[in-house]
Design a protein around this nucleic acid. Sequence first.
DNA 1: ATTCTGACA
DNA 2: TGTCAGCA
Length: 155
Amino acid sequence: MNSKPHPKKLLKVKKPTLDNMQFRIGELARMTGVSTRQLRYWEKQGYVSTIVRDDGQESRLYSFKAYVKVSVIKQYLDAGEALHDAVVAANVTLKDVKVIQHIMRTAFQGLEMHNDKLMVNLGFFDEQETKRLYVSIESGKVKYQLVDVPDEEPK
DNA sequence: ATTCTGACA
DNA sequence: TGTCAGCA
């Protein structure tokens, strides 16, 4: 449309990741079903934290992690727990999730085809790293399998 | 329009 | 915890 040789402006767009997602208190309230009154109270009690702002703004910002925590607390609340107990239970749950996530990240080494079957590489089975553990699904059942590490691949 | 703090028929 | 006031 415009033929003038204007300098090309390169638009830098921040990648939309969970880590840079931020919510204001009203949004978080709608997302979680927890009232803004509750969110402010929970913060005052130290149950949930807000993002420290570098700019001169006063309104609260919540991270995605805060969203998750609020959601978990809410679930325990709905299950009948008192607020403090719900927070304690939520902390335990989130800590367990961290462990599970670490295990999953560490264990999953990728997918490989072995004799026409799809195998999940779960990494070395032994400390000496002479065997790898694979898991596959055969007719709906989980099947584990040890495979020798070939000599061509020393470590 | 939304958020904030404080107070309570 | 809800809600409303009175600000910013």
